[in-house]
Amino acid sequence: MLELRLVQGGLLKKVLDSLKDLVNDANFDCSATGFSLQAMDSSHVALVALLLRSEGFEHYRCDRNLSLGMNLSNMAKMLKCAGNDDIVTIKADDAADSVTFMFESPNQDKIADFDMKLMDIDSEHLGIPEAEFQAIVRMPSAEFARICKDLSTIGDTVVISVTKEGVKFSTRGDIGTANIVCRHNTSVDKPEEATIIEMEETVSLTFALRYMNSFTKATPLANQVTISLSSDLPVVVEYKVAEMGHIRFYLAPKIEE
């Protein structure tokens, strides 16, 4: 028996909106730790890892570890039917072939339940070791989204370089080139407007902008994004999910031909 009650149901809507274009089907794993997911995009270039810790739910009952295979676009369709302020409860029996999403309006005057068929998904799970990164950039998530969107109108790839000068996002295309430099800046009115660059070593990596733009669908989840870089490793683009967890996107770099 699984029963997870999330008062901030809107968070789950935002999580699904940030996943559904990248991944078609995925297993949601429920354990005492929390509600999690790891999935790759269909071309196995990017990976997403979601964790919503059990403490973040108002009620979290998970009698035994369960893996719920769901089509994310169908799940997103169902969650779209919840109000942004609704309380969302996810329910499933141990041997269930469906999952129930229950939506309660904040003043309890409307209660809806949606039942979605589960599916068997044979997915590969990857072990991701904790890594020390050469550079970690924290910046406003909207700024990062803007940069990815702007650069993708000019080129297909972005070179992200971190030096003492700051973090530079560069692209080139048929019509020309573009470089955007963001400097370390903590003298801002609000902490979420800060850009914090921690650098052990300079690093420069090339990534496909198509994936970066897909990751930025998570922008409504968090004011800040963390971009962790090391030479010859996938970049990690992380958005916090309130105080209860995170969504991390891993993207393999491109190499020179």
């Binding site: 790759m40 990857l126 080129g155 790839t157 996938p234 393999a252 491109k254």
Partner: peptide, 14 residues
């Protein structure tokens, strides 16, 4: 531009 690497090249299967 460049050759796209695969994410599975970096992490082992569990």
């Amino acid at each position: 531009r460049g050759i796209q690497r695969n994410i599975t090249e970096f992490y082992r299967s569990t």
